[in-house]
């Protein structure tokens, strides 16, 4: 099945990161947020594709009116910026400025203490904020990302950015064997984290009903979840003011109907959990491109 997906590139500006890093170091978190409110105005104007995607999100997914949608688009950009600033603050050692609460964490830890696990997240909230909370467990964390993204991170570290507290598994579609790094990590009691909501062109995908509209999801994380015979968790880290709420939902992995049925079942469980999270945190949906595959209509 083929569909238009994410283009595997993320928008980011090194100068912006440096400026906000400076604000955080010298003036604190609140000062950074205040400045963000102005910077966001620029992005609302200068990022038409993201703005259009959010407009579509509020108008056609949430069925908000024009005025409410316009306000929510601004707030959405702001919330996105806040999550980036928070991630940066936590990387810079300001995790004591935040409160962390978790749901389903004991069960998750029990699985980790027994061996390995697969975590499937999404581009909602800010999953990286969990790393100080995980303590030593973070050392066993392996994040799966595309090689192109990993190269950017390596360059940033080379330029002086802090080392990552977790490991990276860089996968490359041109290298058949790269996916085996995931099974090898799992065999060594690692827990492997993937995002389950970004389909990249030419990859295997599934069309599912999501928030009342048809959307395309990648099959990869769920195929691995169905095959690897390790516990699968859906993980979301959501912002609630200066508190981060971590959700660990254990998925039911049943191999009864074969691996294809298991994969589909996992995907449906994931979509249902993601919907649940979005209903609580609608402004923390950070797939800032046209996510839904239904034809465009003027809204």
């Amino acid at each position: 099945m083929s569909a238009e997906g994410w283009n595997a590139k993320s928008r980011g500006n090194a100068t912006g990161y440096r400026i906000f890093g400076f604000f955080l170091r010298h003036f604190g978190l609140n000062f950074a947020y205040i400045n963000l409110a102005y910077v966001v105005l620029y992005f609302v104007l200068a990022a038409p594709a993201q703005r259009a995607a959010l407009w579509d999100y509020y108008r056609r997914t949430w069925h908000y009116g024009r005025l409410k949608s316009a306000w929510c688009v601004y707030l959405h950009f702001f919330r996105f910026g806040q999550c980036l600033v928070d991630k940066m603050a936590i990387t810079q050692g300001l995790s004591d400025k935040f409160e962390f609460v978790a749901e389903g964490y004991d069960d998750f830890l029990e699985s980790l203490n027994r061996g390995s696990a697969i975590m499937i997240g999404a581009h909602v909230g800010a999953w990286e904020t969990g790393t100080p909370f995980f303590g030593d467990y973070a050392k066993r964390m392996h994040i799966v990302m595309f090689d192109a993204e990993y190269q950017k991170i390596k360059e940033a570290i080379h330029r002086g950015a802090p080392q990552l507290p977790y490991n990276i598994i860089a996968v490359n579609e041109d290298d058949l064997g790269s996916i085996l790094k995931i099974s090898e990590a799992l065999q060594h009691n690692a827990y492997v984290c993937m995002q389950g909501d970004r389909y990249v062109n030419n990859g295997r995908c599934e069309r599912l009903d999501f928030m009342g509209r048809e959307a395309v999801f990648p099959q990869g994380p769920f195929i691995l979840g169905a095959k690897m015979r390790v516990p699968v968790y859906f993980y979301f880290s959501m912002r609630e003011g200066k508190k981060y709420h971590f959700y660990f939902y254990r998925a039911t992995v049943s191999t009864a109907g074969g691996s294809r049925a298991c994969q589909l079942d996992l995907m449906r469980q994931y979509v249902s959990r993601l919907e649940q999270v979005l209903h609580t945190y609608p402004q923390q949906w950070f797939n800032l491109y046209r996510f839904w595959s239904d034809p465009s209509a003027a809204v």
Binding site: L176, G177, S178, I179, L180, E184, R204, L224, K227
Partner: peptide
Amino acid sequence: DSLDLVDVVVLIEETVGVKLTQRDF
């Protein structure tokens, strides 16, 4: 595709008793 390879490696291990790694490939 890369996801097939996960099956293939398991199959090879079960059939031939040989474990192939990413480096081997």
